[in-house]
């Protein structure tokens, strides 16, 4: 099964289980959780089920295309089920079968692994799903997002697409994957990985101080504008600018441009903004959109 076939299979599977098929967020984010289709939709009472691919950037994991398992940018297939159905584990296992994984021939395990995002004020309870010892999915019951207790509880299923494709295609190097139609993953992404890694680690033809100063400035300006957007009641663009800040912070971090104390301060600033945006979404998103207990 090619990389793109896998995406098609998962999309078809979840569409047939009542999910809307959404598109990736067209911004730099570290995970599918940052997408408003997750971050906003899990707030409030309205049922919502959605599936989408999210290209996810982790500047720190950039390896210049040299590492067979690590990437600056990988792809997640993200599913949100709200409320979480009673049969969610069984449905999830069926999705693996749909991708050609026969659970009777493999050792599939749900092992405790809780999730927390300090920058989003979010946490959940769940497992990593192991397939013959390989982590293929993060499975989370969200408990809080933006510091707000959720009701009902949403289930987030995040498939690591490269990992699963490597398993199915029996290749040991991600760049050897067949993306589709005989085209290799390396042909599609290798140069991008090299360039992005260089950028993430500050290997740009400019002095490191200038690189750092530019990104700090970008962060501060974007942050200020996000606050402006929030004050104007424009919550969706406010979230997008908050996410841009989060990515700029990741670049500052991976390029070694910030020290310890500053690092903590940056995380706190992004978190405070995310929490305010989440609260504003709950308050203004829909008139009846107030979770229990508020």
């Amino acid at each position: 099964m090619t990389f793109q076939d896998l995406i098609l299979k998962l999309s078809a599977f979840w569409a047939s289980h009542g999910c809307l098929l959404q598109q990736p967020l067209d911004l730099e984010v570290g995970a599918g959780t940052s997408h408003p289709e997750t971050l906003f939709r899990v707030l409030g009472p309205k049922p919502w089920s959605v599936g989408y691919v999210q290209p996810s950037r982790r500047p720190d994991d950039g390896r210049f295309g040299q590492n067979p398992n690590r990437l600056f940018k990988h792809h997640q297939y993200q599913v949100i089920l709200k409320p979480s159905p009673d049969e969610v584990q069984r449905i999830y296992l069926e999705s693996l079968e749909a991708c050609g994984i026969n659970p009777r021939q493999h050792d599939i395990r749900f092992e405790e692994d809780n999730w927390e995002s300090p920058t989003l004020g979010a946490w959940g309870i769940g497992w990593q799903v192991l397939l013959d010892g390989l982590e293929i999915t993060q499975f989370t019951y969200f408990q809080q997002v933006g510091g707000i207790d959720l009701s009902p509880i949403s289930c987030e299923i995040t498939y690591g697409l490269e990992r699963i494709a490597m398993f199915l295609q029996r290749v040991d190097n991600v760049f050897d994957l067949e993306w589709g139609g005989g085209v290799k993953y390396s042909e599609v992404r290798l140069q991008e990985e090299i360039d992005q890694s260089k950028y993430a680690f500050g290997q740009v033809d400019m002095p490191p101080e200038a690189f750092a100063a530019l990104h700090r400035e970008l962060f501060d300006r974007t942050y200020g504008f996000a606050e402006q957007l929030l004050a104007s009641g424009l919550i969706w663009p406010a979230l997008e600018h908050c996410l841009k800040c989060s990515h700029l912070f990741n670049i500052l971090d991976s390029s070694g441009s910030i020290g310890v104390t500053e690092r903590t301060a940056y995380i706190l600033r992004v978190r405070q903004l995310a929490v305010r945006i989440a609260k504003a979404y709950v308050e203004q998103g829909e008139p009846t959109n107030v979770p229990q207990g508020l």
């Binding site: 398992n69 009777r104 021939q105 050792d107 013959d132 398993f167 040991d172």
Partner: peptide, 22 residues
């Protein structure tokens, strides 16, 4: 240690080997 008695344990063993090798 795995959570079933597979018909073909070698499939699981090979996969586990690949994960460890990585």
């Amino acid at each position: 240690v795995i959570n079933l008695q597979p018909e073909r344990p070698e499939i699981i063993a090979r996969n586990a080997e690949r994960v460890l090798a990585a």
